[in-house]
Simulated scan of single mutants.
Amino acid sequence: MLNQAIKTAEEAGQKILEFYETDLEVIEKEDDSPLTKADLAAHHIIVNALKEIDPDIPVISEESGIPDYEERKNWDTFWLVDPLDGTKEFIKKNGEFTVNIALIKGDKPVLGVVYVPALDIMYYGDDTIGSYKREGDSKAEKLETDTFKNTGPARIVVSRSHGDDNTQAELEKLGIEVSEEVPSGSSIKFCLVAEGKADLYPRLGPTMEWDTAAADAVYRYSTNSGEKYSPLKYNKETFKNPYFLLGMDEFIDLE
C-alpha cells in the first residue's frame, strides 16, 4: 500500500503543479479557508486511486466532508487525505504546500505520505519500515532522530501563515527555552522535526485530523525501532485536534 500511496501522491502533485503557474481562482469555504481548482483536482485523483487499491477501505478527504460519527466510530481502518495542505502557501507561490495521504488504524496513522510537489521532496513512512525522505531522483534517506529531552534550548517550528507571538512565552512557562524559530508551511513542519531540522513543533492554533495525519506518521516512525510518542489521536467524534506539542516523549498540555 505504501508504494501505491507514494505514486498517487506524486500524480496528485503533478496535477497541482499544472495550476501553480496560472492565475488562480480562489473560493472561500464555509470556514473561511481558501479552495482552488487544484485542491479539487488532486482530491479526485487521490480518492479514485485509493478506491482502486481496496474499495472496501473508506476514504475521508478534506474536500469530501466528514461522515457522521455514528457511521465511522466502528471503522477499524480508513484513508485520511488532505489533497492540498497549505493552500495559503500555494496561493502565495512559496512552494511550501503538500499532498497528504494517511492510513488510519484504530486511533493512529500507520502509514503516511507527504509530498512537496514544488520542491519534489517526498516524505513517507509506516509502522513496518520506518520513515524516509527522498529529494528528486536521489536515494531515499532513512530518518532516525531522537526526541527532545529538554537538556538545552530548543529549535521550534513555527507556522509561516499562522504566527503566534505567545508560543515562546507558553514554552517558557513549561521550562523550555527557545533558541531558534524555524518557519515553515503546511505539514512540512512535522517533517522538519522528524528529520532533525527542528526539535519541537508547538501548535497553539486549530488544526484538523487531515492536516496532521500523514506527517504525524512520518514523525512517529522516524526512529531506528518502534514508534515515537505523538499526542494526537484520530477518528475522534470531532475532527478538530487539540493544541499540541510534538517532539517530546510525553503529553504536554498547551490548552
Rank of each mutant, 00 (worst) to 15 (best):
244 F>Q: 05
22 T>R: 15
20 Y>K: 07
159 S>N: 02
165 D>T: 12
105 K>D: 15
6 I>H: 00
59 V>L: 09
53 I>M: 08
67 P>C: 01
120 D>F: 13
168 Q>I: 15
217 A>H: 07
33 S>A: 03
120 D>K: 09
66 I>W: 08
199 D>C: 03
109 P>K: 03
59 V>E: 10
91 I>Q: 06
192 L>A: 01
124 Y>Q: 12
225 S>I: 00
228 K>L: 08
66 I>P: 03
109 P>S: 04
166 N>W: 09
124 Y>T: 01
204 L>N: 12
218 V>S: 04
64 S>K: 00
200 L>D: 01
43 H>P: 01
14 Q>E: 13
241 N>Q: 12
166 N>H: 07
186 S>L: 04
82 D>L: 06
146 D>A: 15
109 P>Q: 13
76 D>Q: 14
192 L>H: 02
49 A>P: 02
33 S>C: 03
217 A>F: 05
138 S>Y: 08
205 G>A: 03
171 L>P: 10
206 P>A: 06
225 S>Q: 09
96 E>W: 05
102 A>D: 11
151 T>F: 15
150 N>D: 07
248 M>P: 09
103 L>D: 03
60 I>T: 00
118 A>M: 10
40 L>Q: 03
209 E>D: 14
220 R>S: 01
8 T>E: 04
66 I>R: 07
171 L>V: 09
139 K>T: 12
78 F>V: 13
123 Y>L: 11
219 Y>W: 07
234 Y>Q: 10
214 A>F: 11
45 I>V: 09
244 F>V: 09
165 D>V: 12
188 I>Q: 12
237 E>D: 09
214 A>D: 10
201 Y>S: 04
74 N>H: 15
112 G>A: 02
113 V>L: 00
125 G>F: 03
243 Y>L: 10
227 E>C: 02
112 G>W: 00
138 S>D: 14
123 Y>M: 05
110 V>C: 11
113 V>P: 02
131 S>R: 01
61 S>A: 11
74 N>A: 15
188 I>P: 03
25 E>L: 15
13 G>D: 10
227 E>W: 01
195 E>Q: 12
103 L>N: 11
77 T>Q: 15
93 K>Q: 15
235 N>Q: 01
75 W>S: 07
140 A>H: 11
87 T>H: 06
212 T>S: 07
207 T>D: 02
18 E>T: 09
190 F>M: 08
29 K>G: 04
225 S>H: 11
234 Y>S: 11
211 D>H: 10
136 G>M: 15
90 F>D: 14
247 G>T: 06
23 D>P: 03
230 S>Y: 09
199 D>G: 08
220 R>Y: 02
71 E>G: 01
163 G>R: 14
42 A>E: 13
172 E>F: 13
21 E>D: 15
75 W>N: 12
32 D>Y: 00
60 I>D: 08
104 I>G: 13
225 S>F: 06
139 K>D: 12
203 R>E: 00
185 G>F: 02
80 L>P: 07
155 R>I: 12
178 V>N: 14
188 I>G: 03
107 D>K: 12
27 I>C: 09
113 V>H: 01
